[in-house]
């Protein structure tokens, strides 16, 4: 029994038998899911298939009613977003989790401000560090914005997603979940987001990418997971399925 070999092969995320009800709606029916280090997974399915429900459980917004989640082999209970983030799971939402009136630097560190003094909730924020690291993080994803004090409301949708991705990177995410991050974005901005995902793969970061645009998903994914009516209906390498076959499968 070689434990070292086991950990190397251990998927970074593994879900077993996930179930979720919203009242009478059975949104997830016994779903198994796994992702390896550095893997890009395209999660597809029709409206209401349960994609968002699955990833919201992983990002701590909801908790499953049944089933287990293992992060790097460890059984975890993700009771809130801060728990997920603590485990290295960062989420990029379609709506961009940013407060428009607050600055880029403030949004970058929202809820996780670096402190000069004190403890979280009773601390004095280190504003110089926030400005410096936010700008470094943005340069890291190739974004050159006006300055750390610019309010986020002054940014375009694509720039906001760029800040969200840089933020996720800064906090050393192991798993990046992107739930329809390219809706409302221009073609150019969409390509930028897709490029980011490919770059992250090079850094060994796992991405779970949800989109209704199969042409976006297919080229960047290693594996396609398809859902319908709360169940996983397919899970196969992207090379083994074409966009047309994917379209037929989920519609």
């Amino acid at each position: 029994m070689s434990t070292a070999a086991n950990t190397a092969e251990e998927p970074i995320i593994k879900c077993v038998g996930l179930q979720k009800w919203y009242g009478a709606v059975h949104a997830l029916k016994n779903v198994d899911f796994h992702a390896a280090r550095g893997e890009v997974i395209g999660l597809v399915g029709d409206n209401g298939a349960g994609k968002s429900t699955l990833i919201k459980i992983l990002s701590g917004v909801h908790t499953q009613d049944k089933g287990d989640i293992f992060i790097e082999g460890r059984n975890v209970s993700i009771t809130g977003p801060e728990v997920a983030m603590g485990l290295g799971i960062e989420t990029i939402y379609q709506y961009t989790a940013m407060v428009p009136e607050m600055s880029i630097a403030q949004n970058f560190f929202i809820g996780r401000e670096p402190l000069k003094f004190g403890r979280p909730g009773l601390g004095i924020v280190d504003r110089a560090k926030m400005a410096r690291e936010a700008m470094e993080g943005l340069r890291g994803v190739g974004l050159h914005l006006r300055g750390p004090d610019t309010p986020v409301k002054a940014l375009s949708g694509g720039q906001r997603q760029g800040v969200a991705i840089a933020r996720a990177m800064h906090f050393r995410s192991k798993v990046l979940i992107l739930d329809e991050p390219t809706n409302h974005l221009s073609v150019k901005e969409t390509n930028k987001v897709l490029d980011h995902v490919v770059e992250l793969k090079g850094l060994g970061i796992t991405s779970i990418f949800i989109s209704h645009n199969l042409h976006h998903i297919h080229p960047i994914s290693d594996r396609i997971v398809a859902m319908a009516r709360g169940e996983k209906i397919a899970d196969l390498p992207a090379g083994e399925i074409s966009v047309d076959e994917m379209t037929r499968m989920i519609s």
Partner: peptide, 24 residues
Amino acid sequence: RRMDFGHWIFATGGHPQAARDMGI
């Protein structure tokens, strides 16, 4: 203006869902 709790107050009122999703 200077404490993390103050940031949380602005975030909570400015965009409650973003604040919640970021763990506040």
